[in-house]
Design a protein around this nucleic acid. Structure first.
Lengths: 147, 147
DNA sequence: TCAATATAAGACAAAATAGTCTTTAATGCA
DNA sequence: TGCATTAAAGACTATTTTGTCTTATATTGA
């Protein structure tokens, strides 16, 4: 069971974090990424293709090809990856699934959820990947140890 | 797309809120609940059966049968319904899907998410259905207007 | 040019979730 | 008692999500 993002989105976030922690300009192919993150190569390909289509990631075919970040980590925030894969519906819809939930016709937890939703959005949009880099490196090293 | 709960859980929450806003002791059959909430009768049956199995809701078969809250609304909190349907994994797992995310091996947003997770848990566990009753009635009236 | 390597694209399969239908058993009432 | 009504149970279908595989195309280097 995922927490709030789909599996695809979780992997997209992991993959972009991984790329942001690498030397600028180096290309990583799907197999290398998959081995570092402990996930199937094909799933990595598919998710990175999605992110390539949305412009966050760049790709190069052929020998010595692979994927790379299209922007500098200081210009990317996690919310962009979420928007590209899962969309932003989770920040717009009623948490209880009521139709027409709004300030005028709030659900029983509308106000409380509104605050939480804002906090979650900020968590994903305030920090850049650059700012998360040290923590990302730590976590990837941990993953490699568990491999 | 749901926000954080499954559709089943959303409907379970709605149905229990609905029951908590009714006169104590009255039974509601699946059709009546479904018409008030604008959802399929069969889906209501299924979800309320789940909640009956977990003891939150009671049921009575046969003519004039139906579903009712097994406890007084002042003794029920939304988190119980979430626990019964979706489980509490969303409050335990890594929001980015990393394996082994913990205080010792945190993911890049571990601390921030920890706070949000606590807030979300409290949102669902602090207020009783009794305390949400007025807001619930408002919302159900709105649903009926939209019907 | 040819072979090797890599992504792109999309078909395909498997699993999870959502939703529907049917049959059975319990209940109340005439 | 017999009928109508209702939930219980579970089979069944549909849809979505997840994950895999195949084919095509681009790139590099020998």
């Amino acid at each position: 069971m995922t927490v709030i993002f789909s599996k695809k989105c979780e992997l997209g976030l992991q993959a972009v974090l991984f790329l942001s922690a690498q030397d600028e300009g180096t290309l990583w192919n799907a197999l290398d990424v998959s081995e570092n993150l402990n996930v199937p190569k094909e799933f990595v390909s598919k998710v990175l293709q999605t992110l390539t289509a949305s412009g966050i990631v760049g790709s190069k075919k052929g020998k010595a090809g692979g994927f790379y970040l299209n922007k500098h980590p200081k210009d990317i925030r996690l919310i962009e990856i979420v928007a590209a894969i899962d969309g932003l519906g989770m920040f717009e819809n009623c948490v209880l699934g009521f139709r027409g939930c709004s300030v005028e016709q709030p659900c029983p937890v509308h106000d409380q959820w509104g605050k939480l939703r804002t906090d979650a959005y900020e968590m994903l949009s305030q920090q850049t990947l650059e700012e998360l880099k040290d923590k990302t490196i730590e976590k990837i090293n941990d993953l490699i140890r568990r491999r």
